[in-house]
């Protein structure tokens, strides 16, 4: 049996095929959980985020179409929004994260995570070339989902400059990363 594409599996999920849902789940569990954990910094909340994503996937018909781009990018965006939403609720309830689950275990290596590991290594190297302030800004903007006003506040920057700074940092990151990978895709995109 050949490997079905994400899109093919998604179509089966639309037909309420639980097995297809499970296969998609298996494919993305580790990535979505790890990404959520990086954002919300707490395992229970990260699980909630992943659950929200699959809830949408299963219950909201037609939520994904191929026009929305690659399935993997799309589901990561949905995951990020789920995390931002949870962070928002958490702030609202003024619930403090008292303990961070820092004692996480390293995963057993599976075939598919090899590329992820490689990407992460390259990405981290690229991040290391940013100034500390740039790293902070990227973190606040992307992983904490701060508003422009909150970033301005936190970093003591004029509101009008926030966007430019975030963009500059991300472009720099992208360039270094693309150069590292040396792949045509990155080079083309950077023009």
């Amino acid at each position: 049996m050949g490997r079905l594409s994400d899109w093919e599996l998604y179509l089966q999920v639309q037909e309420e095929n639980k097995e297809a849902l499970e296969r998609l789940y298996d494919r993305y569990e580790k990535l979505l959980f790890s990404f959520s954990y990086k954002m919300v910094k707490q395992k229970e909340m990260a699980e909630e985020a992943v659950q929200d994503v699959f809830m949408k996937l299963w219950r909201k018909k037609g939520i994904y179409t191929e026009e929305k781009g690659k399935f993997s990018s799309w589901i990561l965006t949905v995951t990020r929004n789920a995390c931002i939403d949870l962070i928002r609720k958490q702030n609202k309830n003024e619930v403090e994260i008292l303990e961070r689950d820092i004692d996480y275990e390293r995963a057993e290596s599976v075939e598919e995570t090899v590329t992820w590991n490689e990407e992460r290594t390259l990405l981290k190297e690229a991040v290391a070339t940013l100034t500390e302030e740039q790293q902070d800004i990227v973190d606040l903007f992307y992983f904490r989902g701060y508003s422009q006003a909150d970033i301005a506040d936190k970093k003591n920057l004029p509101l009008g400059t926030v966007k430019g700074r975030v963009r500059l940092a991300l472009k720099h990151l992208r360039k270094i990363y693309s150069d590292e990978r040396g792949d045509k895709y990155g080079a083309e995109k950077m023009r």
Binding site: L31, F33, L123, F143, R174
Partner: peptide, 14 residues
């Protein structure tokens, strides 16, 4: 610009 950033996440065992 942000598409690759999720892959910065350390692998965490669910």
């Amino acid at each position: 610009l942000t598409a690759d950033l999720p892959y910065l996440s350390e692998e965490v065992e669910p």
